[in-house]
């Protein structure tokens, strides 16, 4: 991915850093699902994309979700496709996991293939402290909170 692209007027434009921040649990409200739809569409725009899960947002990534008996669509498998969309920077806040009695083992194992390293499979999820994530936020151009 180049750092620059041409805009509609043909002028060179810098790639922007987009950060999607998810703070809500799935199913109880539609925010998690429709946030994921934004991330997937946004991935096609060749920008620098990151996704963060904090507070109840960490519940979006739990493995073993089964919605059969609530009659709603289980959209959790879509998170596993993020790597194919080149969304490879997925941050989960350590404090939010701990507060909810969760560890990274309770979450889906999300991976991406690094074409620069012979398609080696790499972990997408990075568990980071609020302090570290705050530094990453400070470096973004666009913050979309859901």
């Amino acid at each position: 991915m180049s750092d620059e692209m041409l805009n509609e007027e043909g002028n060179v434009q810098r790639t922007k850093k987009f950060m999607y921040v998810n703070r809500k649990a799935p199913y109880g409200t539609v925010y998690a699902l429709e946030s994921l739809e934004v991330v997937l569409i946004g991935a096609a725009f060749e920008q620098d994309v990151s996704v963060a899960f904090i507070d109840d947002g960490v519940y979006q990534l739990t493995k073993g979700q089964n919605t059969t008996d609530i009659g709603m669509k289980n959209f959790s498998p879509t998170y596993a496709a993020l790597g194919d969309y080149e969304v490879t920077k997925i941050y989960v806040e350590k404090e939010s996991l701990e507060k909810r009695g969760l560890t990274v083992d309770d979450l889906q194992h999300l991976v991406w293939e690094d074409e620069d390293e012979d398609y080696a499979e790499k972990d997408s999820i990075k568990v980071v402290s609020a302090e570290e994530l705050g530094q990453i936020f400070a470096d973004q151009d666009i913050m979309l909170n859901f």
Partner: peptide, 20 residues
Amino acid sequence: SGLGQLIEAGIQADRLLVFG
């Protein structure tokens, strides 16, 4: 229109504000 219009707004605008 599509969600791409939101991403484009993020790219083209100096500031993107979310009200929700």
